[in-house]
Write a protein that binds this DNA or RNA. Structure first.
Lengths: 221, 221
DNA sequence: TGCATCCGATACATCTATGTATCGAAGCAG
DNA sequence: CTGCTTCGATACATAGATGTATCGGATGCA
């Protein structure tokens, strides 16, 4: 059903290609370029119209190619969508990593919360695409597995910081394990992001998230 | 673009119909039946395949009709989707109303939380359809307006209970207004529901929601 | 029961999307 | 520069979805 192999460069019509030594496809400069532009175009088109309503030609047109280029790089829209998600999710993860890099236990909780809140990728188009992908995953177990894998990676990135900064004893029952607590924080982040879909005003978003995290994490009121 | 008039019975080809007195269409028994079955079938098909990937014929086939029946009752899939959402959202609202009906301040907070948690409509198909609708709304301002309206109605249903049961002074800053607090509770509910999409195991869901609400609402730990 | 009306099935025309086969052109190796 | 490989455009064949016009049967009312 859905190709989950994913991030392979996937040269499609491998007629003769691939020189004997087992090294990758021979020509690669132009190919990488068009692949990139196809992904970028797909991002925009998916955000605007929704994955389900987008056709292959639409993506190609937005990228300045014809369908020939598409079929040379991907097998299906599903595959492109998957590659796009992996690319963007990786980007997001790197961003969070960077934002949390300098965290130290001395800063105190409010500073950490600020740090997290400011690391938020408040990009409505990304939320649109990501939610579309979530629905896609909800209907395709193999895609879901990849999505869950990525959520795990995100949790593992955030968890050490949470563990260092928060006193488990001060947390309510059920959230005393750093694992569960971190997961809850990420879930709340997701809920905040979802609010962007209906209310594009992002000035209200950061305070909302800050308030909720503060309410959840502050031992004293 | 999208007909938002919505819930009108909308007799399509109103050739001659509608007797002079201004009363509705004359024949109505069979019509109501097929409309209902079309909606029910659409619910299933949308949940399974996603709004964007569903065609009109698919809905009709699932309902046991042909496209003739569809075009006699709706103008477009968008219109049917809208009607479907209103129907189901109304149903959900009624359910919450009922669950909260007997709430009294004597019960105490844990009992209220249990009440809320148990009122949850843990229906994965409904979450699928609802999320699809959310995305649909995110891309169509008029649909978004209707969705926001419904969220308001939900908040107004829940708010009196929250106001009676919770001491604002015990809440963290930013959530002291019953309005904001109630909205946050509903948002958390939505986040919980979204978890159903990736992890269909609903036994884990209720505890998760209970823990989070408890953490948020309990003045003392 | 008879009749005027409406509902939904059928058939048709149109439009769009998909996938494949083929070919000229660009890119890289020697 | 030359020749070979690959990329991506073009053209074609096919499949599916949409909307409309029309018709027979069902339905409600007198």
């Amino acid at each position: 059903m859905v190709e989950v192999s994913g991030s392979a460069p996937s040269p499609r019509t491998q007629r003769a290609g691939q020189r004997p030594g087992g090294t990758g496809p021979r020509v690669t400069k132009r190919r990488a370029e068009t692949r990139e532009r196809l992904l970028a175009a797909a991002f925009g088109v998916f955000a605007e119209r929704g994955f389900g309503r987008v056709g292959i030609e639409e993506v190609c047109e937005a990228a300045g190619y014809t369908r020939g280029a598409f079929y040379s790089n991907f097998d299906s829209l599903d595959e492109l969508f998957f590659a796009l998600y992996e690319q963007q999710a990786g980007h997001t993860l790197a961003q969070v990593n960077e934002a949390l890099a300098g965290a130290s236990a001395d800063e105190g909780l409010p500073a950490l919360i600020d740090r997290v809140v400011n690391a938020l990728r408040i990009d409505r188009t990304w939320v649109l695409v990501r939610t579309d992908f979530l629905l896609h995953a909800a209907r395709n177990p193999e895609v879901a597995a990849a999505l869950i894998r990525h959520r795990e990676a995100m949790r593992e990135t955030v968890q050490p910081v949470v563990r260092d900064m928060i006193d488990p004893a001060a947390m309510p029952p059920g959230l005393r394990e750093p694992q569960a607590l971190t997961a809850a924080i990420i879930d709340i982040h997701d809920a905040a992001a979802a609010k962007l879909l209906l209310e594009p005003d992002l000035t209200a978003l950061r305070p909302w998230l800050r308030d909720l995290l503060t309410a959840l994490l502050s031992p004293s009121r």
